[in-house]
Simulated scan of single mutants.
Amino acid sequence: MDAQRQPLGVIGRAPGGDARAVAWEFPADLRAPSRARNLTRGELAAWKLTDSADIDDVVLIVDELVANAVVHGRGPIRLRLLLDGLMLRGEISDHSPVAAPTNTRTSREEDAEDGRGLLLVAALAAACGSTPTGPGKTVWFQFLLTGLAP
């Protein structure tokens, strides 16, 4: 496995619970969203998510947020997934201090070909937001899963 695809850390199960976590770091280049999609899909399958629609939705959210970090942030980009019961939290961090936008579209931009990613994230996620961190920010989402296989 090359260094770009190797997990930064797989935490495993937390004592007394069903928590799992994994993190990866990517250079801020155009290959990062594809790598993030593939790694996310593989990890969710390993965590035995049962609903393929859940997997597709989470992969779409990760793709949108990692792509935003590539275009608007400053690298490297860190993707972290945390699963606790049926609640999945995703965190995408970069080193740009510029906050993530809260209003992604104005009425004048209805015909724009881009700018819909955060609207998709907000529509699919149970919750989402942005938190300033050290040298940059973390954009996060929470997604309530349908179920996990035993």
Rank of each mutant, 00 (worst) to 15 (best):
G12E: 10
T50A: 15
P135E: 11
A112R: 10
A21I: 00
E110L: 14
W24Y: 15
L119F: 00
L30W: 10
N68D: 11
E91K: 03
E43W: 15
G75F: 03
G115Y: 08
K48E: 09
P97D: 12
L30G: 11
L118P: 00
E113G: 15
D56Q: 12
D111H: 04
A36D: 05
S52I: 04
L82D: 12
R5N: 13
G147T: 05
L8M: 14
G85I: 01
T146C: 01
D18F: 00
I61R: 05
G73A: 05
A45H: 15
D51T: 06
M87N: 09
P97A: 12
G85R: 02
M87K: 11
G115E: 09
G12A: 09
R108D: 14
G134K: 03
L81M: 10
D56Y: 01
L124N: 04
I61D: 07
S93H: 10
A125N: 06
A67T: 14
A99L: 13
M1K: 10
L83A: 10
A126S: 15
E113H: 09
L44E: 07
V22S: 04
W24L: 04
H72G: 00
E43C: 08
G42R: 14
K48L: 01
E64G: 01
E110N: 06
T106E: 06
A23P: 03
W24C: 04
P7N: 06
L118K: 01
G16C: 08
I11N: 09
K137C: 02
F143V: 04
S93P: 02
V10G: 00
R89V: 14
P7E: 02
T102V: 08
W24H: 13
A3W: 09
D54R: 04
P33T: 11
C128T: 13
E113T: 13
R41T: 06
P76C: 08
L82I: 13
A53P: 00
S34C: 02
D57Q: 14
R89Q: 15
W140D: 04
G12Y: 06
L88V: 04
G85S: 02
P101S: 07
P132V: 13
V98F: 00
T138M: 11
N38M: 06
L145M: 12
L49S: 03
G42H: 12
P27Y: 05
A28R: 04
H95A: 10
L39S: 08
P76E: 04
R20S: 10
T131M: 14
D56V: 07
E64H: 10
A125D: 07
R20H: 14
L83R: 05
A149L: 14
G90C: 09
G129Y: 10
A32Y: 08
A53Y: 05
T133C: 06
L44A: 09
A32W: 06
R13Q: 10
S107W: 05
T131L: 15
